[in-house]
Nucleic acid binder design. Structure first.
Length: 970
DNA sequence: CGGAACCATTAGAGT
DNA sequence: AATGGTTCCG
């Protein structure tokens, strides 16, 4: 978006810099623009420097975008803002903790200090694995918790609960809880009984009062399912309600053992993690919080004059408190939209924004309870609504509002959640919106049919050009005329299909491939649960030790029946062709080569195959996984249901397919919201995988209890938890917000589809679904195949050491350089170059980028961008060099390897030669019949300098020297 | 209208 | 294991 004049409400935000503001920034209201303008204005109108303004966001991308926008709007350049606190919560707190928090654990009674080498773990699977290791030690050390440990099928599930408690701000000490942070664990009795009283009111029937909702929810109560102390059906009755006294007894029953257990697990896990030099993100924030509470000196030094928090609906309680501690004055501004809060499962708390004023006061008095930490007034909160929407047509905006009040179950009473809020106002002049709902048996075909119906169809016109734009003060007629001129029939990439579940997306993707309709999935994929991963796992097992399980899968794949497979396994009489293939595989040296060979053999060319190879070969810097390690890695991730991000092919004209969560923050001209099916959307929750659960109203509870009260010792369902659960209404607000988010992504047109069983959300829409007999026609869009460049050298049996190409380069040459524009500049340029080469519509932001653009547009032929290159150097010890090639330009006769360098001078030229030489040998083996040229492209002067390659022997020498050097230093 | 039995389903993903 | 819906009986 260009930078127009701010509208009135944006201007109000930009101009209001003193005091506390809650900004209701609705979808598409130019929030980023306004926030960055506000930042710029603070710099211009006060004597504040960038380090006085804290700007926190939720994602790294958002932080980077904010920084870029600020550079555009101020006199500061990227380098000057490099150290400015424009950051994610996590990155900022991690930095803080490392600088000032070495002794933070002592406040909790933990002797370990925070080491400089602290490892911050992001990968769920790894964190959980480490937690399991801790739990088995914990179980040995704590026989007194034996009864509680018995209720677990998988102790690893406790890991998520610890994370949830940390997000609430609950922090343990050796002897209890840090300050009063343990209070929420016992629950909020008043809140529970208020809810209970409401749910226990008799309903109004035609013939008098009928069962209360709570009474209805314990239908099917069978005391036999529970430990012997459970009340019978009759004892629950207090017609037509549930007996209050039974519920009170259940609520107040003794939970000391449970609380002690959770306390011990939590504090010892924290100590364990520190002793192992790592922290998870949640624990890290908790320690940063402790450090800020404990150190008035640090608060005084780093406290910021201005604090802004973006996407405030995605923060948790702990982050709210941290933000308060980081502010030196009450110049605090939180920006967000409660209607787009869809990350509750990541422990975010929508009440941070909906109850902002109340929480602000409560958290402040908590933080000031034992000493004064928050030294500014928090009683005056101004609310600024941003309501001018720059994305969607008016009819889409008004249609989307209903999503927040469609009930998810027959009994749910939603009320009017939008009462008192201001509706979004469209700025589109032309409203040509088509809003339609369709239903068919076979929803995949229905969606594909609708896509084909829409593409090139005038009645689904979208903006096909940025021109002409009417002046800001043009008359309505002129604006309408200009907008009409910009409209034209849509293409595939104007369309996005959103789904609630990945399963639906996966099915649709497969169907689209059958028809040859271009759909590109964007987002997380359960990569280890794909047929490709299972195939890879089978052959890895065959090649490694655990052959039987591998052969079973391979034989089944090959079409052998169950009986026959059993015989073959028992007799070990495997088919010759398969044995031969195994021998061939075991000869292969690299993991990448192994996987490729397996996928080639089975004709697997899907994106999953590519992603798997990329993921497994790129896992750890410096080392390659052995086959054995790969097997356990796949197994762990399969069990942990790990997802891996898959990139859609940019540059091509394809429909985007993603989950609603993945679509947050994005916009598309045409949105098809699929998957509006019973039990999919709205989604009715899942049984808790952890037998200990937390809820604000009830506190910590066990879903299962070990008891010896019956005839035999047994783990029973916990009747108290079951009863309390029944007394609380289910909450589907977040499902409705998902519906809202999905609808408000659409700029021009909005379609809904459902299959055999449309859900309540579909039925609840104010339009009727049209029945359709879908008939998609086959097309011929072939997927672009894509293989990373690898060379297989089956020689030594030793696993080669992996070395990055930069490791063989000598950094000391930079000591003599005259200038240098920082890594941020270089990264930006590379990102731009990648996007440009892939044909995305990006504009060069500076001279260097223009030089790259000119270079690329002058080249005819095929591009490979940011390609991974692996060069095995056989010998003793074996080494594999790895690197990423900026640009490979492929023509029929020659290959150009191009690497961009932003250096103003060329002191490192000889070092670049080493890097490019490695790429040379990789490409020489991939394209043996073509000439390969190496070019260093100096972006400042727009000059290409050709270099000649070094021999592999020379590269080997350099690699050996580099390994010796690094091991000698450490 | 209340109650019981039975059925189908089982998510989402930042740092 | 938990959830909401559906169906059927008294």
């Amino acid at each position: 978006m260009s930078d127009p004049t701010p509208n009135d409400n944006q201007q109000q935000l930009i101009g209001s810099t003193d005091g506390i503001y809650r900004v209701d920034a609705g979808a598409g209201t130019g929030k980023t623009f306004a926030v960055t303008r506000r930042y710029a204005r603070i710099l211009e109108t006060t004597d504040a420097a960038p380090e006085d303004i804290l700007l926190v966001t939720f994602t790294r991308n958002a932080a980077a975008e904010m920084r870029d926008r600020i550079v555009q709007q101020t006199d500061y350049d990227l380098r000057q803002l490099q150290d400015a606190p424009i950051s994610t919560f996590h990155a900022y707190c991690f930095r803080l903790l490392r600088r000032h928090g070495h002794t933070a654990p002592t406040a909790l009674g933990i002797d370990d200090q925070i080491p400089d080498s602290l490892d911050l773990i992001e990968e769920q699977a790894r964190a959980k694995q480490l937690f399991r290791r801790f739990m088995s030690r914990f179980a040995d050390d704590h026989p007194e918790h034996a009864d509680l440990l018995r209720v677990f099928y998988d102790r690893g599930t406790l890991h998520a609960l610890i994370g949830e408690l940390a997000a609430k701000g609950v922090v343990p000490t050796r002897n209890g809880w840090y300050r009063a942070t343990g209070e929420p664990l016992t629950g909020d009795r008043e809140r529970f009984f208020d809810a209970f009283t409401a749910a226990n009111q008799p309903n109004e029937g035609a013939n008098g009062p009928t069962n209360s909702d709570a009474r209805g929810a314990v239908g099917g109560w069978d005391a036999g399912e529970y430990a012997p102390d459970a009340p019978t059906r009759g004892e629950l009755h207090d017609d037509p309600r549930i007996s209050r006294s039974v519920v009170e007894d259940a609520y107040d029953a003794d939970r000391d053992a449970l609380l002690a257990f959770i306390h011990d697990v939590y504090i010892e896990y924290l100590a364990f993690a520190l002793s192992q030099n790592y922290l998870t993100q949640g624990l890290m924030l908790a320690l940063a919080f402790v450090m800020l509470c404990e150190s008035p000196g640090v608060r005084a030094r780093i406290g910021h004059e201005y604090v802004m928090v973006d996407e405030f609906q995605d923060t948790n309680e702990l982050q709210f408190k941290i933000a308060l501690l980081l502010a030196r004055t009450n110049n605090i501004c939180v920006v967000g939209d409660w209607k787009q809060s869809i990350y509750g499962f990541q422990h975010t708390s929508v009440a941070n924004i909906t109850d902002f004023g109340e929480r602000l006061q409560r958290f402040t008095s908590e933080l000031n309870a034992d000493c004064r930490r928050i030294d500014y007034a928090v009683d005056d909160v101004q609310t600024i609504p941003l309501f001018e929407n720059y994305r969607s047509s008016a009819s889409i905006l008004s249609f989307a509002e209903q999503s927040l009040s469609i009930p998810a179950t027959s009994s749910e009473d939603v009320g009017d959640p939008l009462a008192g809020t201001r509706s979004l106002e469209a700025t589109n002049a032309v409203d040509n919106a088509q809003i339609d709902a369709y239903r068919a048996d076979g929803e995949y075909d229905l969606v594909l049919d609708r896509i084909q119906h829409i593409v090139k169809n005038e009645s689904y016109a979208v903006e096909t050009s940025n021109e002409p734009q009417a002046d800001e003060d043009a008359s309505d007629e002129d604006r309408i005329a200009a907008e009409h001129e910009r409209l034209g029939p849509p293409s595939y990439d104007d369309i996005a299909v959103f789904t609630r579940t990945r399963a639906f997306a996966r099915g649709l993707l497969e169907r689209a491939e059958e028809y040859g309709i271009p759909l590109a999935y964007e987002g997380g994929v359960e990569l280890f649960d794909t047929p490709e991963a299972k195939l890879a796992l089978a052959w890895l097992r065959i090649a490694e030790s655990d052959g039987r399980r591998g052969w079973a899968v391979a034989l089944e794949r090959a079409g052998y029946g169950f009986e026959r497979t059993q015989t073959i396994l028992d007799e070990e009489s495997y088919p010759d062709a398969m044995l031969q293939f195994r021998d061939e595989l075991t000869e292969l040296e690299t993991l990448g080569g192994f996987l490729r060979r397996v996928f080639d053999r089975y004709g697997r060319t899907s994106v999953y195959a590519d992603a798997l190879v990329d993921h497994l070969t790129g896992l750890y810097d410096g080392t390659l996984l052995t086959r054995g390690e790969t097997i356990s890695y796949i197994e762990e991730n399969l069990a942990a249901e790990t997802t891996v991000e898959i990139d859609a092919n940019p540059g091509s004209d394809a429909v985007t397919l993603q989950t609603i969560h993945g679509a947050k923050g994005l916009e598309y001209p045409i949105v098809i919201l699929g998957n509006l099916n019973e039990r999919s959307f709205p989604h009715y929750g899942q049984p808790p995988s952890c037998p200990i659960v937390y809820d604000d109203a009830t506190g910590l509870r066990q879903t299962r209890m070990y008891s010896e009260a019956g005839a035999y010792p047994h783990v029973y369902r916990n009747w108290r938890h079951r009863l309390l659960q029944a007394c609380l209404p289910s909450d589907y607000d977040e499902e409705r917000r998902l519906l809202y988010v999905a609808m408000t992504r659409a700029k021009r047109h909005l379609l809904f589809t459902a299959g055999e069983e449309p859900s309540r959300f579909m039925d609840g829409l104010s339009i009727e679904a049209e029945e359709i007999d879908p008939d998609p026609t086959p097309e011929s869009h072939s997927p672009i195949d894509h293989e990373p460049f690898t060379v297989d050298v089956p020689t030594s049996r030793d696993i080669p050491t992996r070395l990055g190409v930069h490791d063989i380069m000598d950094d000391s040459v930079y000591d003599n350089r005259t200038g240098g524009r920082g890594t941020a500049f270089g990264t930006e340029l590379h990102d731009f170059a990648e996007a440009y080469a892939l044909g995305e519509s990006v504009e060069p932001a500076n001279n260097d980028q223009r030089a790259v653009a000119q270079l690329i547009s002058g080249l005819a032929g095929e591009f490979r961008v940011e390609e991974t290159a692996l060069l095995p150097l056989p010998g003793e010890p074996a080494v594999t060099l790895s690197g990423i090639i900026d640009l490979v330009h492929v023509t029929d006769t020659q290959i150009d390897v191009i690497d961009y360098k932003t250096d103003p001078d060329r002191v490192a030229h000889e070092e670049y030669r080493k890097q490019l030489s490695a790429y040379y040998h990789v490409l020489a083996s991939v394209y043996p019949d073509r000439e390969i040229r190496l070019q260093v492209f100096y972006t400042q002067t727009a000059e290409s300098v050709e270099v000649t390659p070094l021999s592999t022997d020379r590269l080997r020498e350099l690699a050996i020297a580099a390994m010796a050097g690094s091991s000698g230093e450490s």
